[in-house]
Structure formats: structure tokens, C-alpha cells
Design a protein around this nucleic acid. Structure first.
Length: 295
DNA sequence: ACGAAGACAACACAAATGTG
DNA sequence: CACATTTGTGTTGTCTTCGT
């Protein structure tokens, strides 16, 4: 994912992506072209961080006019993001103002990780696919690709290789059009009857087609949708009850008044409000309590 | 061989919230 | 009040594949 936390042990598996960004093979939001046109500047920024230590974009900013939108990056921010993309800089956290703080990998990662050998692109991609199948259990080729945001076309032959090597086993799932795969050691688990409010960024829902296939649950994040076009609300949490997606709630923490506000509740087709109210109420209580909200 | 459908890439376009 | 913060989604256009 773009801005997900990952275990540092995965660093070697993503080095091929950093290399691709550095060589210009991988295009990203115009960062590649910015670098091509501002090489000396970008190198100066990197040198600055190496010498002076971690920095936020603001510290290096020369902006004099107001920002027009979130996406209105000045040169310093663009340079830092380019270096972040190529792995020459990493994030070592965020400041008190939310701003991402950048530093060189040598000061962010443990030595043990930096010294780990770099696998080939193919080996790295296959390792990511194996981790994906462990996470997903049963998955289509596209599901596996999506888990670490790989491209289906690139992954397709690798999945075949993993099948030939006996790492993955091809299976079919009732109601699925595409072929599915399981890990060779996969065992049929007991059915789970989980009940939980899910984060909009929960790994259970981030692969939309899989989510629709498994749970018949159509979900889109509406944080980036203009208010007038939103169907369910700004920050909507899917609600799973007894292992099924039964609805969604738009929540907001009103910290000033110590209240968890439930802005809206929607149930899926065929689900009656009365059947979810109790479980939902319990989950909302849990949530307000760990957020430290009284009501 | 042809048309249709599907896949894919490129692109445009979006705001509420915590902190000091 | 000022100020800082990201990436998901739908559309459009193009290429690929599939079925007849």
C-alpha cells in the first residue's frame, strides 16, 4: 500500500521498487519528471538531510504563497517525496503537526535490516505473493497481486511458477469465476463468527473486488469524495457481525464534548436494523471506551 | 476476420481534522 | 485561527483477448 506501515523485515523485498523508481522505470505522480528536471536540487536536499539530520517538508520550504490544496507541493516537498519513493529517504515518524519526518535509511532501519541481502526482483515478488497467500488464505491471482500492490500482468507468470514449484495449490471456489489458490500447507479452518467495526483501511476490505466476492459488500472510501456526492459519510466503518458484512456506520470523535458521534447507520440489503442494533451498540461502546470518550 | 468485451493506463479531481 | 497533512475513485481512451 502507499502509506501503510510494514514490518522492517520486508525492506529487502521492496528494494526492486526503489531501484525501479531510481532508474525512472517506475513513474509516480510526476515525481520522476521532477527529478529529471531538478537533479541537482534533489541531490542537494538529500545531502542536507544526510548532514543535518531528520527534517519535515516545512523546514526546507521556500513557499511564500498560501497552499491551494493538499496536492500543491512545493519544490522541497516534491524532492523529499521523490527521495522517499526511491528509498534514499525514509519516514522516521510524524511531527506534532502531522507532518511526515524524513531521514536517511541508515538512521531509521536497524543495521541488521540494512545488511540483509537484496533478492532479485522475481524472488522478491514471489516472496510477497507467498506472504499474501498466508494472509488471505484462499485467493485469486488478482487478490494475491493486490495484497502488496503488484500488477496482475507481472504476477501472473510468477503465480504459475509457484504452482509448478508446489508452493501454491490451485483450487476452485463455489461461486468464483476465476481460479483460486491456497498455500500447500493450508488447512481448512473452523468457521469464524467475528463481530467488529472495521477501519476503512482494514486489510479485510482494501481489495474491493475480493471484498465484493467474499462478502457481497461494496465499499468505497468517501474521505476524498466531495460532500455532496457522498453516499454514506466522511469516515465510514464497515460493520462485520458473526462473520458477515451487515452494515456500516459513519463515526466521528467529538473530543471537546467527549462523545462518540454516530453520524449515520446503514444496513446492507436484506439486513434489518433490529438484528444488528445490539451487537453494534456493544462495538460502539468498545470504541468510545478505547478512544477515551465518555458518551 | 471481425466485433465486443475486458483489461489496463493515464488522467482529473476531490477536505476535514489535530495541534499549538 | 493558522497551518500542516494522502491517496482513492471514476472517466476516458487505448490495447488485448475472446468468441463467433
Amino acid at each position: 500500500h502507499e502509506a501503510a506501515h510494514l514490518p522492517v523485515e520486508l525492506h529487502p523485498m521492496f528494494r526492486f521498487k526503489m531501484r525501479a523508481a531510481r532508474s525512472g522505470k517506475m513513474k509516480h505522480w510526476g515525481l520522476t519528471s521532477f527529478y529529471a528536471e531538478n537533479k541537482a536540487f534533489v541531490k542537494r536536499i538529500l545531502k542536507h538531510v544526510e548532514v543535518n539530520g531528520s527534517t519535515s517538508a516545512r523546514e526546507l520550504s521556500t513557499r511564500t504563497t498560501k497552499k491551494s490544496s493538499w496536492w500543491d507541493w512545493d519544490e522541497a516537498k516534491t524532492a523529499l517525496e521523490y527521495l522517499f519513493l526511491t528509498g534514499e529517504l525514509m519516514s522516521c515518524g510524524r511531527g506534532s503537526d502531522f507532518a511526515r519526518v524524513y531521514d536517511i535509511p541508515e538512521r531509521v532501519l536497524p543495521k541488521k535490516i540494512l545488511q540483509m541481502p537484496t533478492p532479485s526482483e522475481t524472488e522478491a515478488r514471489k516472496e510477497l505473493l507467498v506472504r499474501a497467500i498466508h494472509a488471505q488464505g484462499v485467493a485469486t491471482m488478482r487478490d494475491l497481486a493486490d495484497y502488496y500492490r503488484q500488477k496482475p500482468a507481472v504476477v501472473k507468470p510468477l503465480v504459475s511458477e509457484l504452482v509448478e514449484q508446489g508452493v501454491l495449490r490451485e483450487v476452485s471456489v463455489d461461486g468464483w469465476q476465476d481460479k483460486a489458490y491456497v498455500h500447500r500447507n493450508a488447512q481448512l479452518p473452523k468457521r469464524l463468527f467475528a463481530t467488529a467495526l472495521l477501519s476503512p483501511f482494514d486489510s479485510l476490505v482494501w481489495c474491493r473486488p475480493r471484498n465484493e466476492r467474499l462478502f457481497n459488500f461494496h465499499y468505497r472510501i468517501e474521505i476524498y469524495t466531495p460532500q455532496a456526492k457522498r453516499k454514506f459519510g466522511y469516515y465510514v466503518l464497515p460493520f462485520m457481525m458473526n462473520g458477515e458484512m451487515v452494515g456500516r456506520v459513519d463515526l466521528k470523535a467529538d473530543r471537546a464534548n467527549s462523545k462518540l458521534l454516530v453520524q449515520s447507520v446503514h444496513t446492507e440489503r436484506g439486513v434489518k436494523r433490529a438484528t444488528i442494533n445490539r451487537a453494534l451498540s456493544t462495538e460502539l461502546q468498545h470504541m468510545s471506551s478505547w478512544l477515551g470518550l465518555r458518551r
